[in-house]
Structure formats: C-alpha cells, structure tokens
Nucleic acid binder design. Structure first.
Length: 571
RNA sequence: CGGGCUGUGGCGCAGCUUGGUUAGCGCGUUGGUCUGGGGGACCAAAGGUCCCGGGUUCAAAUCCCGGCAGCCCGACCA
C-alpha cells in the first residue's frame, strides 16, 4: 500500500474529549473516529488491527475445535422472553418495534439464540460442540467512555459450549481458558486470569482475563508470591484481628453534628474507625436491609448481590433511612433493630466494645457488643479487600491492580437449555438437558488494551502480531531519483516476501513522515536516503526500541522479514 | 440517574465577565517559489448555521429561558 492512497487522517493534536492514551492515540493516528457517543467508525488502519485481533482469536478457537457461525444481531422479543431476560435485562438492551408492531431487540449477547439452535442436536453422539462467532453486540451503556474501551456497539467473539454433563462442561471451560491464555499472549497482552463473580449470569465458575492499566474500570487483587488472583468483587484477604478493650454496658451518648466515621473517630478517643460499626442501609429487591461493616472497611456491592442472591441492590435514600430507622445517615445503627434483616461482614464477628449510630439524630452508642446487642441475621463476606492485606493462601501482602477486562469465561449450566428445552438422548435412551458455557472477548476493547499497553510519547507501538502493517519504507527523495527507485524496489521485494508494507511516497519532509509513522506505530521502518545509498545501505529502525542499523540494500528486505518473524515467534 | 465542565472553520484555542468594527490566533488545507535526514521559509488563497430553538435589545458568539450534544467523576454495567 502506498501512503498517498491510504486514508489516514492523522492529527497533530488530540481532540479535547480524549483522555486515556488509547483513545487519544487511536484518534490522532487515524485509526478511529467517533460518530456518536459510544459508536466509532474503524478507519482502514483501525480495521486492519481489529481484523488481526479477530483472526488470532479465530485461529485459537479453531484450534480447540470451535466452529465459527454467524447469528443475527437483531432478535425477536420472544427468545428473550423465553429465558426470562426480556424482563430482567432492563435498560441496557436496545429495544425497538418493527413495522408490524412486533417487539425486537438488538442482541447484547447470544445465549438465547444458541440455546434455540441447540434444539437441533438430538443425540449425545453429536456432542460436545463449541460454537463461536465474531458479532456486533449492542448495549445501551449508561456511560460510554475512553474511546474503544467502553462503547455501545462493538465486535465480540462469543463462544458457547454444549455438553451433556458437568465433566464435558469442565473440559470445554478448560479448553477455553487455555485458548484465551494463548490469544492474549499472541497479542502481547499480559492478561491475568482471575476468579470472578459470574454476576447476573449465575453459574459455577467464572474467570476474567484482566490487563493491568490505569485506564481500566475493574480492580483485581493479586498475590505476587503464590499466584492467587481475583476480582475485588470476589477477593478475600486475611483481616488482622482488632484488640477490643474490655467493654461494659451499652451507653447512648450525644454526638452533635457528627455524621461520618472519620468525624466520630476524631471526636472520640475510644472510637477509631476499626472499632466502629458502619451501618449501610440498602434496598435489596425492594427489601430495606441493614448492612454492617467495620468502620474502616468498604462494601463490595457485587459481593452483597452474590452472597444474598438479590437481583438488585441500591443504597437507600436519606428519606428511606428516616422512614425505616427514624434517623438520618450519620446516626444509623442496628442496635435493637428487629424488624429489618441485618447482614454483617465477617470482620465484625465476635467484636465488642464498639461504637455505632443510635438511630436518633446526633446520638451514638458506645460499648456495643455485637453478639449481645445486635440481632445479626447472617454473617457474610461483604468487605472489599484492600491493598497490602495478607493473602489467605500464603500470608504475603496482596496487591490491588486496576485492570481492563478483555475476556470473561464462565459456566452457565443448564439454565438456557432448560428454557429452550434443548435436550438430547443419552446412551441409555433418557432425555438429558444440555449444559452450556459462555466465553467472550471484546475485540475492540482488546485492541484498545494493546494500545494502552504499547505506546510512548511519540505514539503507538503495535506488537507485530496485530500491527496494521509490518514495515514502512520511507524514501527521503528530494530530487534524488535513485532514492525513489531503490525504495520502489524494496517495496516490491518486501511484498514478495510476504510482509505487509507501506511505501511512504508522499512528497513531504522527512520529519513529517517519521512522525506519522511513529504515531501510527508501524513496527519497522526502512529509511532510504541519499546518505545511506552512497554506501549502498539503508537504515532499518525498530519502532519499539528506536534502534537503528545500517543494512546493505540487497539484504534489507530479508532483514525485515527475519526481524518480524523473530518478533512474532517471541510473542 | 446525581455532581462538575464544555460546545466558536478539519484539530487546538482566544473573544463572552462589561452586548456595538468586517469573529481572531496557531496548526492543518489549496496554489506558487525556494528548501530537502526530524512537523522548514516566504507569497497568495479557500474554509464559519459562533450547538439548536425562543426571548431581551436599536444591536446577541456575548445577557435570559428551554432544549440537544460531548467529556470527566460517581452510581450503574456478563
């Protein structure tokens, strides 16, 4: 490809709305353009990277026996009604009505469609199956952001395993875990497989693939010494015991104007945060519920959902607190509460001589013994793990890492197959409901994660496996015709060797060409100039390291090919 | 959904507080001359519903009301 024919609208300055590196650079380098919040056009270079990512995914899916298919992006409402998700999905699903008045939706995932298709399997002899597609998903995200990282329409590779029993599902799950590990390795992404919550999907196992990045939206916990890794939604850590001095009888005392844990700790020597009870009022599926944590701990809402099985949780409003407990946030507590469910985090178990709100504005209780004074309905793990807390497996400090979720695999079980009556005959002639797994990778998000991982102050630095082109040949022609001829010859030679090459044939100054090529992030640059040609040499520069070597013209193409192949093999 | 910020040529911005020349600057774009190994110089030119609608006023990019869009934080989110 000649640069002069290529549509690469590079920008010298990043548009003001772009904040994170991948967003800024993909815009500046002419890979993407926004049409609308959360909807991006992939320009020629962007599409090439996107395709390369998708092709790596396809190769590894094929390698574990996956079969590619393509399902509709638009679904009739009835398939979602059949699984019960038409009602439960809420506003995240784009819904519309066709000319006949029929309700339809844009698919945000395809479990239903797969389960419906799976009815065509009748015998255990036809199992197992792994079906996958690279299809556009539509999700009406409340807040699209960060370029390609969080959008409302995006390509996802989603695969689904169909098995007759749990052992088969386990096998399919393990195959996917292996495939995902190879996929991210090949893209150069240092993805960490972590235990995760399966969230609204349910299921017995759930692993997320997380790429560390400040641009991410998820936190994981990792133990560098034993390898334990989990999403904070699920992570556990050792809680160092707190020494409670001997207490005594419960006592109410005035705390005028004190509304926060910190303010109470400042006012009361006997009430440091770890000796307070934090009382949070939540509405779980419509039921007002008290959630108790140690004062210095914070609640993980996902844990609350997972542990209680509630579909929805939201903090109660101030008015709801007053209605339920008679006081406003800041003076709330669970002492004496008998008419509301009380959930408490395990870190509070056995504690005494604590301080908490008295359910009267501007009053707290001291010397609370949690077993004696509070009727705890259930003890649950609800707290969010903090950086540096000891690992439960090996005792070493855990690290908290911000990450981009690039893949998620989980076992669905029989929920969807049951809803669609996807059953097969087993060897004994009995009907058995299929069990399914569901496995996703966001293609565009993975691409953005690579951009987040590989860039510098000059621009993008794509790993060769996903780079839009392998090499750029840059003639510094001026009026020197020989330079142009050598560049053309090298271009042909490189194409012939199977490398993907751009010839920068623009009549532009060297600085312009170099800057653009570095911004775009082509892994190798061959510079052809009169200076080098005087010695029958060209320069070979590696984008990532900036290292340049002089190479005889006759050997240049082969040198590029070798360098590329070696880099590819190293991934 | 709550909080904050922003909408002015393709991109980055100024002008708005205190209404009043022909709406300006840098970059980019087009033509030309020179230049030719890191965004070069000079000359000439094109390019604008100042987000939209209404209002106030002799007069609105500027003030007022309403809307829309975008970004950030939070909430939410396989």
């Amino acid at each position: 490809m000649r640069w002069s024919n290529l549509f690469v609208p590079t920008l010298r300055e990043a548009p003001a709305e772009a904040e994170v590196a991948s967003h800024r650079l993909l815009l500046r380098a002419g890979f993407i353009r926004q049409l609308h919040s959360g909807h991006y056009s992939l320009l020629p270079l962007g599409l090439r990277v996107h395709d390369k990512v998708a092709d790596i995914v396809r190769e590894e899916m094929d390698a574990i026996g996956g079969q590619e298919l393509l399902l509709p992006a638009m679904h009739p409402a009835w398939v979602w009604e059949q699984s019960g998700r038409w009602a439960s999905m809420g506003e995240e699903m784009f819904r519309l009505t066709d000319r006949k008045g029929a309700e339809v939706a844009l698919g945000m995932t395809h479990e239903e469609v797969i389960a419906h298709l799976a009815r065509e399997i009748h015998s255990y002899r036809e199992l197992p199956q792994i079906w996958y597609q690279v299809q556009w998903k539509f999700r009406d995200e409340p807040r699209p952001k960060s370029g390609l990282l969080r959008v409302r329409e995006f390509a996802m590779k989603d695969s689904y395993s169909l098995d007759i029993d749990d052992a088969g599902l386990d096998r399919a799950f393990d195959l996917h875990q292996g495939a995902y590990t190879r996929i991210f390795e090949r893209m150069g992404l240092p993805a960490i497989a972590v235990e995760a919550s399966s969230g609204a999907m349910g299921g017995s196992a759930s692993v997320e693939f997380m790429v560390p990045s400040d641009a991410g939206e998820d936190d994981i916990v990792r133990c560098a010494s034993c390898g334990y890794a989990a999403n904070v939604e699920r992570a556990v850590a050792v809680v160092a015991p707190v020494d409670d001095p001997p207490g005594g009888t419960l006592e109410r005392f005035a705390t005028p104007g004190i509304r926060t844990i910190a303010a109470l700790a400042a006012a009361e020597a006997e009430a440091p945060p770890q000796r307070q009870i934090k009382t949070m009022v939540y509405v779980l599926d419509g039921q007002v519920t008290l959630v108790l944590l140690r004062g210095d701990h914070s609640l993980s809402e996902q844990k609350l959902l997972d542990r209680t099985g509630a579909a929805q949780a939201r903090p109660a409003g101030a008015d709801e607190c007053v209605a339920a407990l008679g006081a406003s946030p800041g003076s709330l507590g669970a002492v004496g509460v008998t008419d509301l469910p009380v959930l408490a985090d395990g870190a509070l178990e056995g504690r005494s001589n604590l301080t908490t709100g008295a359910n009267v504005d501007d009053f707290h209780y001291r010397r609370v013994d949690i077993e004696r004074d509070i009727r705890v309905g259930e003890w649950l793990d609800l707290r969010q793990v903090r950086h540096g807390e000891p690992c439960t497996a090996c005792g070493r400090p855990l690290e908290l890492l911000r990450c981009i979720e690039t893949g998620h695999i989980f076992k669905l079980g029989r929920r969807y197959a049951e809803a669609f009556e996807a059953t097969v005959m087993d060897a004994e002639g009995a009907a058995r409901v299929l069990t399914m797994g569901s496995y996703g990778i966001g293609i565009g998000r993975a691409m953005a994660a690579v951009a987040e991982t590989y860039h510098d102050e000059r621009g993008l630095c794509w790993p060769v496996s996903v780079a839009p082109y392998d090499v750029a040949v840059v003639p510094l022609a001026g009026r020197d015709a020989a330079v142009g001829e050598v560049a053309e010859r090298l271009y042909d030679e490189l194409c012939g060797l199977g490398t993907e090459v751009i010839l920068d044939d623009r009549d532009a100054r060297p600085g312009v060409k170099f800057s653009d090529i570095e911004l775009v992030g082509i892994p190798y640059r061959v510079t052809v100039g009169p200076r080098g040609l005087a010695n029958d040499e060209v320069e070979l520069t590696e984008r990532a390291s900036g290292q340049t070597a002089n190479v005889p013209v006759a050997e240049a193409a082969a040198a590029v090919r070798t360098a590329r192949d070696e880099a590819l093999a190293a991934l």
